[in-house]
């Protein structure tokens, strides 16, 4: 019942915040995001608990084996989760930087240089989006093997270890599909931005294209790009368990796969408490970033801020 109680506590705290802050017009646009975050986390926790309990029951009915709920202490759970969170955060941060730089960078370059030949990159993004993540990982492993055969240098960075090279390769796999996704979203937003009346007006005034792109295309589309970027981040967190499982990377994703009863040599015992704690860890990363992105959008686009204030 610990998890349900925790969900209830978070929901009550969010409700109290809602009651106290909703009448304060000045604070509410920002506080609303935090209240929503609280309700979202509480609901995610309740749903996770429900699904894992169903999973546990069905396993018991089929004669499977699971670690009994409540068998690990809170401090043990915390230790396991914290030990796995550090490496995962490192991996996610690297993948985010790589993915954002590549995806947004290429999309911006196409608009800034206005060279339609670069649109061919779109084909590459479509191809990458259709590749299952583990196949990307296989390709990366092949590249590592080829480098080793050609130079005699082991560039994989070791297996199941947190090294710079291991992070780089895993982050490349983790960041490639989100990069393709964010590129595609950014291209749509920037292409539509280029069609706006104020862009035509700026052209008629004789401004140079780089200036038009910077001031009249990039700036107004930034809030839309933030939303696309956030979706690509969801993509990344979603495939984190698979990437960490593939590379044997000791992070939250790998621990979660183990806790759900999937091991390298076959089925392992389901660990309900650990599974819920790890799902929540990933959910916190996602929802906190979502809240931050929402605040950033309001900051970047005053129209959005007004709309959300009026919405209340």
């Amino acid at each position: 019942m610990f998890w349900l109680n925790l969900a209830l506590v978070i929901a009550i705290a969010s409700g109290l915040l809602l009651l106290c802050l909703s009448p304060v017009e000045r604070l509410w646009p920002s506080a609303r995001v935090i209240v929503r975050l609280g309700f979202q986390l509480s609901a995610v926790l309740a749903v996770t608990w429900f699904l894992i309990t169903l999973d546990d029951n069905s396993l018991a009915a089929s004669g499977g084996f699971a670690v009994p709920a409540g068998s690990s202490t809170t401090s043990q759970l915390l230790r396991t989760v914290l030990a796995a969170t550090g490496p995962s955060l490192l991996l996610i941060a690297t993948a985010t930087v790589l993915g954002s730089l590549v995806g947004l960078g290429v999309a911006y370059s196409i608009t800034a240089f206005h060279d339609r030949r670069l649109v061919v990159v779109g084909l590459l993004a479509t191809v990458v989006l259709a590749i299952p993540t583990f196949l990307l990982a296989v390709i990366i492993q092949e590249i590592q093997a080829r480098i080793y055969l050609a130079t005699g240098q082991a560039v994989a960075g070791g297996y199941a270890r947190v090294t710079v090279l291991a992070i780089f390769w895993a982050a490349t796999v983790l960041g490639l599909r989100p990069a393709a996704y964010v590129f595609r979203q950014a291209r749509v937003a920037l292409d539509q931005g280029e069609l706006a009346d104020y862009v035509r007006a700026a052209r008629a005034r004789g401004l140079t294209w780089p200036r038009i792109a910077r001031r009249y295309v990039f700036r107004p589309t930034t809030p839309t790009l933030v939303s696309g970027w956030l979706n690509s981040f969801r993509f990344m967190i979603g495939s984190l368990p698979l990437v960490e499982f593939f590379f044997g990377y000791p992070g939250v994703g790998q621990q979660l796969v183990f806790a759900l009863g999937i091991g390298y040599q076959g089925a392992t015992p389901l660990q309900p408490d650990l599974a819920i704690a790890l799902v929540m860890t990933l959910a916190v990363m996602l929802t906190v970033l979502e809240a931050a992105a929402s605040l950033l959008q309001q900051l970047l686009d005053p129209r959005l801020r007004e709309l959300r204030t009026e919405g209340q």
Partner: peptide
């Protein structure tokens, strides 16, 4: 709520 979950998990 569904968006708060890692999709594969």
């Amino acid at each position: 709520v569904l968006l708060g979950f890692p999709y594969l998990a």
